[in-house]
Design a protein around this nucleic acid. Structure first.
Length: 112
DNA sequence: TTGCTGACCGACG
DNA sequence: CCGTCGGCCAGCA
């Protein structure tokens, strides 16, 4: 127990994810970079995988990969769940990818 | 304990 | 442009 940071890691991930504005999206890598662990983008994905177990909801559907692709849609029960969530927020999805990704992209660094 | 698998990313040939 | 590889680190057999 040298550090509890690994414990905070998931918490931080969730905290950042909850800050993603309605109608915006970000990437696993962007969150990882913001947390200072640029190489741990996969862990962000893993955190999202577990996020549905939390008491407080996490907008995991607003997190996509660096290409804007809905790489995690299979974890929303498969089908069109993730896409529907995004489109209900005004984010157009075509061929499992966010349309106008750059315009919808939200950088965690903008938190300050 | 070892080894492998991920909702990833960047570098290399 | 495409495939491949290493790094990251938590969980599981």
């Amino acid at each position: 127990m040298q550090n509890d940071q690994h414990e905070h890691f998931f918490e931080r991930v969730y905290a950042v994810a909850r800050c993603i504005p309605y109608g915006k999206v970000t990437s696993y890598g962007a969150i990882a970079r913001y947390l200072g662990t640029a190489g741990s983008a996969r862990m962000v994905g893993w955190a999202m995988n577990q996020s549905h177990l939390l008491p407080d909801p996490v907008p995991a559907h607003r997190v996509v990969n660096r290409n804007g692709q809905l790489s995690g849609k299979q974890h929303f029960g498969g089908g069109e769940v993730m896409r529907n969530l995004l489109e209900s927020e005004g984010v157009e999805v075509v061929d499992d990818a966010v349309l106008h990704f750059a315009e919808h992209f939200w950088d965690p660094a903008s938190l300050g």
